[in-house]
Write a protein that binds this DNA or RNA. Sequence first.
DNA 1: CATGAATGAGCCTTCATTCAT
DNA 2: CATGAATGAAGGCTCATTCAT
Lengths: 210, 210, 210, 210
Amino acid sequence: MKKTLGGSATRVRKRPVDKFEDRRMQLADAALVTLAEQGYARTGLRDIAERSDFTHGTLHYYFHDKAELITYCVRRYKNRCIARYDSLVQDGETAQDVLEAFSGAVVSTMIEDARMQRLWYDIRSQAMFEHVLAADVAALDRDIEDMIFRVVLRYAELSGREPSLNPALTYALFDGLFLHAVMNHLAGKASESEVRSGIEYLLGSVTRPV
Amino acid sequence: MKKTLGGSATRVRKRPVDKFEDRRMQLADAALVTLAEQGYARTGLRDIAERSDFTHGTLHYYFHDKAELITYCVRRYKNRCIARYDSLVQDGETAQDVLEAFSGAVVSTMIEDARMQRLWYDIRSQAMFEHVLAADVAALDRDIEDMIFRVVLRYAELSGREPSLNPALTYALFDGLFLHAVMNHLAGKASESEVRSGIEYLLGSVTRPV
Amino acid sequence: MKKTLGGSATRVRKRPVDKFEDRRMQLADAALVTLAEQGYARTGLRDIAERSDFTHGTLHYYFHDKAELITYCVRRYKNRCIARYDSLVQDGETAQDVLEAFSGAVVSTMIEDARMQRLWYDIRSQAMFEHVLAADVAALDRDIEDMIFRVVLRYAELSGREPSLNPALTYALFDGLFLHAVMNHLAGKASESEVRSGIEYLLGSVTRPV
Amino acid sequence: MKKTLGGSATRVRKRPVDKFEDRRMQLADAALVTLAEQGYARTGLRDIAERSDFTHGTLHYYFHDKAELITYCVRRYKNRCIARYDSLVQDGETAQDVLEAFSGAVVSTMIEDARMQRLWYDIRSQAMFEHVLAADVAALDRDIEDMIFRVVLRYAELSGREPSLNPALTYALFDGLFLHAVMNHLAGKASESEVRSGIEYLLGSVTRPV
DNA sequence: CATGAATGAGCCTTCATTCAT
DNA sequence: CATGAATGAAGGCTCATTCAT
């Protein structure tokens, strides 16, 4: 409300709602570190609290229960991923740009974010069993599907082609590729070049000349 | 197998080792029902015992700990899967046979074994975090990869084609397809025809004319 | 009371002490609603605050701790009860008036105030265990005892009789009657006429002809 | 089953079901000590375990949850009370015997079992709020009501009288007497003679010449 | 062989209370 | 005055595991 008050540039304090939300983000980021390390089932709220600047009581102050915290965390991580991929790809001006930006991003995700990614796969698996997680996870998965299809569309458009598969099927194939890239990386089997060639192959495979 | 066959007519009891192994299988099959229903993290040994003919303590007599039981269960389930797919596919005499047998098997897995499959995905996710599971799961995954590649090889051979991707990449793509088929099915989104066309597409895509 | 009245026309604000006390009453009344619903042990200060116009922290500003709030609440409720019974009974001009006013009041307490009454019985039970509550509850119980005896005295006097039991014993019997009336009502066993006849019987029983 | 096997007098081990039930009793008796001391709401399962020979996990092995343990405990205590009163009273051969046995028992309950009795009043209060307790407590209260009426009947019969009030009302009055006896005793106000005379008065009051 | 009693660590959650603003 | 952020102890409960029988 009192936000954009005149030209005053010295609004020192954020609105209360922002403070609350800020702390949620801060806690979520701390939680993500632990979650990525230990996984959903093996991470207690106490573990999370211990590696944050707060106590475990505070976690419950900001999140109603564990499920809410976890979905908030995963949503936060995944939204960042999606934004990152979107911006990367939209900056590309040739099909080659897009291909390289995309496969570069996948490789770096695989290498640097392997632990975060496995958390995502973990939570997505749990969501097959736990009702409370299902809706949130499904929504996120749809967002990722859309993002992947945007990449494919952009690539197709820049190379005079068009998608040959629907978004769901397209995503399923890329998802398989990502998942195995991460699993392989965590298993110590370096496969950067294989991932790159896999993506190149797949981008060609899921599009066709107009 | 069938080791002490011969002419011996007085083999009243199986050899001890067999009895032990038999019971393990019996327990594992009972456990699989519960595990498929509730998932790894949410299933206690008590839950399993309650739905079997044995007690809680007996489980520990036959399995050293929970991880051993679970990996034994999953290995059992997955080996059955692999055998089933192998026999189905090897019975086919034309490429069309193989295609139909394979996609039919996938569809029926998706529909009837959805709960078992999600258990596999669950355990595979946990294996990314729990070292004790990692080796067993990795071995199983390799077996599946091999099986998938046998299907592709057979299909290729019968249609005058050859694989265009290595086994790992081939599996990754099929795996993505399977995983999303199961997730969609569990989410209530029927997609039988889509799965069939996906498989047909993919079999064509991972092979090329010789 | 009304101390600074006089000719001063500008007394805009109540004296500080009154404001403080007013707010305590306001908070206590809000608290009573929740307490009557959930009982002492199951009611958190948060529950109370949520159903009032104030926050959690404010409660501690006006009451030192939970025990003080609770005793304040119960005292408030019970004093209202006592005042009500006193005025009802003193208005009666014949023994029959008193009997009817009294049993009518008990019946309406049983029906409309059942949830408040159970709170009283609850706190009185807790006071048997928690020292901090003991003194306050005991004082209240004495006030009720006195009130009951005033009713009996008034009834006796108007009917040419006199009490035949001491106040403590008299109260004990009426208290048993009340308690069971409330328990029965909460259990769904309507017993209005039984309560009325019980009271009539008891008023006769605890008095005797002069 | 194998219980009364022939004339063998040396059945060393009880049947399994008995062992389980025996331990429940043992744990319940230990629990009653702590519960009587601290009251329902202030007693944790850990408190109970600490003052028993077992750990808090064991409590959950024998009782499904806290409510089951508590109701089991109270039922156990109250059934003992009822049996005790029944046998005491039935041994009396004259009205005077019954009067003395009964009031003696009440006095000794008041003095020696005051802490147990307050637990009963506590749980009965909680049952007005907690649904899980309601049914069990109501059943117990009915048993006590019956017992009281048996006393009154016996007393009436031996003195050529008959009950003048129904069982519910009769119990309500005695209950009020008991409750206040216990509260007074806990408050340090000795009142043995008063209790005795109250009971004598009440036994006369709730009966009338045939 | 198989049982089931017993354990104790650990989990999520609730809550009265304190305190800086 | 009033707020609400933060705390930490405590609560009920679950569970893999051990072990005497």
